[in-house]
Simulated scan of single mutants.
Amino acid sequence: MACEAALGGERLLRLLQLASPALPVGAYSYSEGLETLVAQGQLSDVASLQHWIEQELAAGAMRLEAAVMARVYEAAIAPSFPALGYWNQWLSALREAEELRLQSWQMGRSLYRLLLDLDPSVAPLLEACGETSNAAENFAVNFAVVYAIAAAHWQIDSRAAILGYLHSWASNLVNAGVKLIPLGQTAGQRLLLSLAPAIARTTDAALVLPEDDFGACSWGQAIACMAHETLYTRLFRS
């Protein structure tokens, strides 16, 4: 019993490390279209930001990203190297805007290199995802895919891993909103707390979503990301 409790505690700590804002992958430098929407006046308060994030969770690309993570997790446990490569390519094709695709690849490569330094035994699973046979810095590997592989390799429960991933994503957007709108820090924390039910619903839906229902409505985010690079001033990376 003590051993099981210790393993559970260790897995929780691994998840906290993966989902931590301190993870050196550069997530803080992206706003995923929020900067454009704030500049256009479409997001101007807590309510509008909450609505945007909840819609992304319910019907946008994040729901599909979570569903793909569940598939990657299963493939890493099997293991099925062809499935890992397939779902990585599938997720790359899902990105409607170049900014979103490059963000996912940059963060994926950063986590890829970090995991190889922390735990070299995960290398075969990671290498199966690369769309090239070149060095790690040239791999077109998505952040969500590497994250799911790390969770499976470290024996973190799949539901907990996806919850942590979505919470980390939402935290990043809330922090972006705090800077851009701007909002107070307390308002940001209240918003993050209020997003918990939506995060849990998206996680549970993603775990059972049939592949025939893999679809999203995220054109608004895609347009906002495409327009981001032409803003007169930018705080976030494009």
Rank of each mutant, 00 (worst) to 15 (best):
F214E: 03
D204S: 13
Y112P: 01
A152M: 14
A187Y: 05
G215S: 15
Y147Q: 07
G184R: 05
Y112C: 01
R190I: 13
E131I: 11
E211Q: 15
A205M: 08
E35V: 03
S29Q: 10
E74D: 13
L163C: 01
N134T: 12
W90V: 10
A123C: 07
R71F: 06
L18M: 08
T186M: 10
V145M: 06
A161R: 01
L235C: 10
E127H: 13
Y147C: 00
G215H: 14
A39F: 06
R190L: 15
A2K: 05
L102A: 13
P120V: 01
C225Q: 12
G184P: 04
T36L: 08
L7H: 07
A93P: 00
V178A: 09
C3M: 13
L193Q: 12
L183P: 02
A151F: 09
D213M: 10
A70H: 07
L115T: 05
E99Q: 14
I156T: 01
G215L: 15
R201I: 09
T233E: 14
D117E: 15
A170K: 00
S110L: 10
A97E: 10
E99C: 13
Q185C: 11
G177S: 03
A47G: 03
D213E: 15
G130L: 12
E74M: 03
R11C: 04
Y112Q: 02
Q221F: 12
G108N: 02
S104V: 04
G9N: 14
H153S: 02
V146W: 07
Q55T: 04
I199H: 00
P82N: 04
A200Q: 12
L111N: 02
I156Y: 03
G108L: 08
A198F: 07
S110M: 08
K179R: 12
V68M: 03
A148V: 04
L118C: 08
E98H: 12
G164C: 05
A200M: 03
S218V: 14
E4M: 12
A170S: 14
A76P: 08
S133P: 01
A59Q: 15
S80W: 02
E127W: 12
T36A: 07
I162V: 15
V174M: 05
W154S: 09
L173A: 00
S238W: 09
A83D: 15
A198V: 02
S238I: 05
P79L: 03
P182N: 06
A161G: 04
E74R: 06
M107R: 09
G85A: 14
A123I: 08
Y28Q: 13
V141G: 05
A206T: 04
C129P: 00
I199Y: 02
V146A: 00
T203F: 00
Y30T: 03
Y30R: 02
L195R: 02
P124L: 01
A67F: 06
E74T: 09
M226T: 11
G60I: 04
G8R: 12
G60C: 08
N134E: 15
G9W: 13
G41M: 07
E56H: 07
R11Y: 06
P197M: 03
Q155F: 15
W105N: 05
D157T: 06
L37K: 05
A151R: 06
S238P: 00
L180G: 04
R11H: 09
I156Q: 00
Q50G: 11
A140T: 13
M226G: 06
L191Y: 02
E4V: 13
A170F: 01
R237F: 11
V68I: 14
A123R: 12
V174K: 02
